[in-house]
């Protein structure tokens, strides 16, 4: 009677050992070794190019951040502007992480009622006026006119807001919404 109990116990221990071994083996079975697919971000805006055209020629302001939300800061370049001149301005937005680069300007133009550029000015930049409007007659800012003042230095801060309150009083505070782009350019006016 005693021995049969002992044998029973041994059997139990064996069963347990076998099961725990099974557990190890089962969990060791590796899943498929697939290489994941790379993701190239689609909505990211890496580059904003502002082209300013006057009778005298063309000046460019550009901000380029090729690693998107990576650690590298945007590279900012700004040509000098001529004093007391009116420029016809246009903004181009690109996603340069893709080849060929994706033009985001079109998306903004398509959803014009949900977007607006705002221009913050200081120093020798006199004025910016909108030259375009969305379907409801509110400004967008992809096309605008910029007027310089006397020679000196100044800044232009260009902010693109998504889903701002439209119409608004032209200030960021009144517009609300979310910032898609914001960039400040230091410019020299000669």
């Amino acid at each position: 009677m005693k021995t049969s109990t002992i044998m029973k116990r041994n059997k139990t221990v064996k069963t347990i050992l076998a099961l725990s071994l099974m557990a190890t083996v089962m969990t060791s079975c590796s899943s498929d070794d697939d290489t994941p697919e790379v993701v190239n971000e689609e909505e990211i805006i890496t580059t904003m190019t502002v082209t300013l055209t006057s009778a005298d020629g063309t000046a460019t302001l550009q901000s380029q951040d090729l690693d998107g939300d990576g650690p590298n800061e945007p590279v900012i370049t700004a040509d000098n502007l001529t004093a007391n001149t009116t420029y016809a301005g246009s903004i181009e937005l690109l996603n340069e992480t893709e080849t060929p680069a994706e033009d985001i300007t079109e998306e903004v133009a398509e959803e014009a009622d949900e977007h607006q550029f705002f221009f913050g000015l200081s120093g020798a930049i006199a004025d910016v006026t909108y030259s375009d409007e969305d379907g409801d007659g509110n400004p967008i800012g992809l096309e605008f006119e910029l007027t310089t003042g006397d020679a000196g230095t100044g800044t232009v801060t260009i902010t693109l807001r998504h889903e701002p309150t439209k119409p608004n009083d032209g200030t960021l505070a009144d517009a609300g919404g979310e910032t898609d782009i914001t960039q400040t350019f230091d410019v020299v006016i000669e």
Partner: peptide
Amino acid sequence: GALGRFQTNFANPDTGVRRLIPD
């Protein structure tokens, strides 16, 4: 007691957004 566990995570690339948590 003993425990064995296997876990696999799949981050779907169709989101078009870089994965916050990888496979």
